[in-house]
Amino acid sequence: MATSARPRLVVGISGASGSIYGLRLLAMLRQLDVESHLVLSNSAQVTLGHESDVGVDELRAMADHSYAQADIGASIASGSFRTLGMVVAPCSIRTLSEIATGVTSSLLTRAADVALKERRRLVLMVRETPLHLGHLRSMAAVTEAGAIVYPPVPAFYARPATLEEMVDQTLGRVLDLFGLESPSVRRWDPR
């Protein structure tokens, strides 16, 4: 059975504010020739409409493959479908909580659960503040299960001039976690 020659990465977009992270991540993966597999929550579709001029169909077209949230039989719901792992960008607290408990109700959280059970990299770009104890406990639980909680905190040492530069720097560091080198990352140099 033939496998993809290109590396594959699953991208989940939840309904948290910050849909720009998912949008830019898909664009960066295309530049890096990484095969993208997109699933977005129903809430993500609403948030996208509030935060962007990009429509849902246009967003789906940015990915190599896109799946309906209810399609629990999709390839990304199976551990036999080989990927580098998954990034949820942005990740809502609801999505984080489902992943933390293993009680998944959608393809997005099922795909994340698969990444964990297969011991693949799972990066959750959690977008919430302030945090209460329940949020922190969920973050601890997913970390103990093997996920990486990666709030999109800007790196001001990179001196971003635009919002896109700030977002791309953060996403470039996320891609570092998968061994993918993005030209948008400004590495720290104290000189």
Rank of each mutant, 00 (worst) to 15 (best):
F81T: 09
M86Q: 15
R110I: 00
R119N: 14
M86R: 14
D71T: 06
L96S: 04
S75L: 14
T101Y: 00
H50Y: 15
I72E: 03
R110M: 04
L116A: 07
S80T: 15
L116K: 11
I93H: 08
L59N: 01
R119H: 14
A68V: 09
M62G: 09
S106A: 08
A61D: 10
A63R: 09
L116R: 13
A61I: 06
R94Y: 04
A61N: 10
G102A: 03
E51R: 02
G73S: 13
L107F: 02
R94T: 05
K117C: 02
R60K: 14
E51K: 07
I76S: 06
L116I: 14
T95E: 02
S52D: 03
A112Q: 12
S43K: 14
I72C: 12
T47A: 08
D71R: 09
S97Q: 08
I99Y: 02
F81Y: 15
K117M: 04
S97G: 12
G102Y: 02
H50T: 07
A115S: 14
L107D: 06
E118V: 14
E118K: 12
S105A: 12
R60T: 01
Y67H: 12
D64C: 10
S41E: 02
I99G: 00
S41Y: 01
G85K: 15
S97M: 06
A74F: 08
S80Y: 11
D64W: 11
V87L: 10
H65V: 11
L48S: 06
M62E: 12
S66A: 15
V87E: 01
G102W: 03
G79I: 09
C91W: 05
S105M: 10
S105C: 05
G73P: 04
T101S: 15
T83V: 14
M62T: 11
L84F: 10
A89Y: 06
H65P: 02
D71E: 14
G79L: 13
S52M: 06
L59Q: 02
L84V: 02
V56N: 04
V46S: 07
R110P: 00
H65N: 11
E118P: 04
H65K: 12
A68F: 11
S52V: 05
E118W: 07
A112C: 12
K117T: 06
A111Q: 02
A68G: 11
K117L: 04
R119V: 10
F81G: 09
S41Q: 05
T101R: 08
G55D: 01
D53T: 14
S75M: 12
L48T: 01
P90T: 05
L48C: 00
S43C: 05
S41V: 08
A44Q: 08
H50L: 15
A74H: 09
L116N: 10
I76R: 09
S80A: 15
L107K: 06
A115T: 03
T109A: 03
S66F: 05
L107H: 03
E98P: 00
T47C: 01
T104L: 07
V87S: 04
L84W: 10
C91M: 08
S43G: 07
R82G: 11
D64I: 12
